[in-house]
Structure formats: structure tokens, C-alpha cells
Nucleic acid binder design. Sequence first.
DNA 1: AACCAGGACGTGA
DNA 2: TCACGTCATGGT
Length: 229
Amino acid sequence: MKRNHLYQLIFDRMLQLYGPQGWWPLISKGGYHCGDYTVPDHWQQRFEIGVGAILTQNTSWKQVEKALVALHQLQMLNHPQTLLDADCQIIETAIKSAGYFRQKCKKLKIFSDFFLQHHRHIPSLSPRREELLSLWGIGPETADSILLYAYGVPIFVIDAYTKRIFTFLGMYKEALGYNQQQELFMNNLKSETILYQEYHALIVLHAKKYYSVKPYGSECPLRDMVQQL
DNA sequence: AACCAGGACGTGA
DNA sequence: TCACGTCATGGT
């Protein structure tokens, strides 16, 4: 099956516009957007990415940063067991800025429990996607973010922005669900972790700029890249 | 004052 | 399967 090179061209254009983003931002690495693409080599960093991925569900990253700093001060990013053992009230207060604090506290505890078990047996090996999806509170985007950014698995992350941009550009002939969109990207791009990481980061940045106020995409500099027939 | 934010889950049709 | 309500704080 032949590749649709528009997927690569749109990436090239965004990279040209914005430069590399270097996701995932880690506070434990001395600052955000460190521009370092190496897969985390410490399990604490993998854990922090999972926590951040859960906290950022339908929430701006700025609010998540505050929550992460608070959790870090409670020693909960370095020690999943501390998070697991803590009273919900403590955690909920720490993560309040990220919204949905009751649900997210429960999600974090479930994830911490899973992480400790998984890490005990196979420290650096990635969990399976279905394993993550079976956890309450981890859906497809969160699971794929963890796989891609924490473990370097070449899997494409789809989010609400992705649908908004690519629908507007006319890249989808019909309404597509999560898995269908993911297939489309992965069938039309080389299977490379760094490419997938940058692509998703650039989509988020680009969407914040041109797709967060209606009418979405009206000023989008990419809007002429796709020929409508 | 409404709308949006790097979603996921529960429910009823 | 899918459309819709719920979860909750903080920005603009």
C-alpha cells in the first residue's frame, strides 16, 4: 500500500514553523522542554510521565505543572509507594489545580499500584497496551502517551486536536475514531519513535495557536496544503 | 459569562 | 457501537 506523503509534509512544515519541541517535559530533569529525545533511562522518569499523562487529561499542562511540583515535594514522583500509601485528601489537595481531583487521585493510585508490580518483574520493559487500557482511568491517549514517551514504543498518539486539525484540513474522508486515526498516521509515516514524539508535540502547539478559538483553523497556515477535489 | 483545556467512564438506546 | 452526561479547576 502506497504512502500518502502529506502526513510527512505536514510534519515537515510544522517542524519548520516551530522547531523541535522535545517532549515529554520532565520536572525531575531540571526544567521543561529540555529538548532531549533519549528514552528515559530511570524508572522514576517513566513514572513521572505516567502521572503527568493522567493529570493532563482534558486539562492544560500549565495546571498540571503545579500539581506535579506539589507531588514532587511530597516525594510522590520518586516513590510510587508513597503515593499509593498516602491519604486521598493529601493527594487531592496537591493535584487540585489539575481538575477532576477525586477521579485523578483514584487513577494515580491505580496506576502507581500497577507500576510497582510491573516494575518489580520487568523493570525497563514496556507494559503491553492492553494492560494499560485495562486499568481504570487509562484510555487510549493516556496509554499511548505512556508507551511513546516513557518507553519509546513507536506508537502514534491521537488527541482531540489531531482530529480537529486533520478534519479541517480535509485529510479525513469521514469521521474517524481513535484507532482509525492512529492507523492512518502509522500507515503513512515511517515507524520512528522520535518522529511520532515530535509530531504529536507539534500538533498540540499548532492547535493551541490556530484551533482553540472558533472558527477553528481559519488562520491556519497549513490550510492550503491539502487539495480539495 | 461562556468556553476551553495534551480524556475517560457510565449509561441508555 | 455511539451519543450524551459527568467529573472540576483555572485561563481567557
